[in-house]
Write a protein that binds this DNA or RNA. Structure first.
Lengths: 186, 186
DNA sequence: CCATTAAGTGGACGGTAAGTCCATTTAATG
DNA sequence: CATTAAATGGACTTACCGTCCACTTAATGG
């Protein structure tokens, strides 16, 4: 399983990280409009060509920048089971929405829409895995009796997380989960 | 109630309509990235200065372009009552999402995010009225017994329409309402 | 008819980002 | 030391932004 001995100068992990960090920080701090490729190159102290060498356009770069942080910030695994596990994760999700990660997520989604017309690429690279994993947890909760609702797990996920995301996107306060949890689970 | 006799050359309704139509058509046909102020001016056969005279930036222009069509396309009023009225409107909403209007709505939301960090301005100028009106219909349905769910009408709205919007935004098929309606109303 | 008022025109301008090109330097391998 | 590929930095074309200004057009009132 060893790689066939890389030739030439190896790709710098530090440079890659600097680019992704700079893109993330710009989205979080200055917003999407200020997160140009030029600005990322300046902030990361990297040549613009290096960015274009590895990312064909801004959309995949921003998705990568988001994933670079989301993986470490929003762990999916958690002890507990069924309804309790969903409630715990929903609390984490709300906290994440109300942080840099939530702002950056919206910026990434906006870039996807601007380029592709929808955020399907973001779903494919990130959300689909979460939706599948959480639907699985919901199904377990239905099996062990902690979730009374009999609807399809994906529908429950969409109502619960879609409802929360809707409020986040449109700035509808308060961003609390109690009513939606009762609706989706009980 | 007569206006105080307008002075000077009156604003041309045809010019205003041409601008809004051009912006809408560009968003629907070419996407947000191609919907520049220059492109709108060219398509509407209007001077760029005329656009800047009435709209300070692209965000309010695109919102106006959306509203210009949405008002005529997605009527809120409908006969029937309670659950039946919600089901009918949900069907209309799904049809609208799966049309030009749905694409344009996403483009407008993306522009709001890019400029403001969230789509709160779009909510204030459009969605908030729909949410309030539909929450009212949901409350009536709870009162007349056609909606069994006891949750807050706004929470039911968020779960139902937020869930549908979520699937639209992320390209999750199928975009059907049955499971979400059962979850939200029964 | 004419002065006034404001809408709309069209061209020009400086600034900035996109995306590409190329010669050069740097860091690894055999 | 020759080879390979990453990374640099500057130059360049194209396009849009936002603004400016002199001008024309369409209405009003005296």
């Amino acid at each position: 399983m060893t790689l066939p001995a890389a030739r030439g100068r190896p790709r710098s992990a530090a440079t890659t990280a600097a680019i992704l960090q700079a893109a993330y920080a710009l989205m979080a701090g200055q917003g999407l409009a200020a997160t140009t490729i030029d600005a990322v190159a300046r902030a990361a102290q990297v040549s613009k060509m290096t960015i274009y060498k590895w990312w064909p356009s801004r959309e995949p770069l921003l998705i990568d920048a988001f994933l670079h942080h989301a993986a470490a910030t929003l762990p999916l695994a958690r002890e507990g089971h069924g309804a309790a596990r969903i409630r715990a994760h929903v609390a984490d999700y709300i906290a994440a929405l109300d942080s840099d990660l939530g702002r950056v997520q919206l910026a990434v989604i906006a870039e996807c829409i601007a380029q592709s017309g929808s955020a399907a690429s973001f779903f494919a690279r990130y959300l689909s895995h979460r939706r599948a994993a959480l639907a699985q947890i919901i199904a377990e909760g239905q099996a062990d009796g902690s979730i009374a609702r009999r609807a399809a797990p994906e529908a429950i996920y969409d109502a619960l997380y879609g409802g929360l995301f809707y409020r986040h996107l449109f700035g509808i306060a308060p961003l609390d989960a109690e009513a939606l949890l009762a609706l989706a689970l009980v």
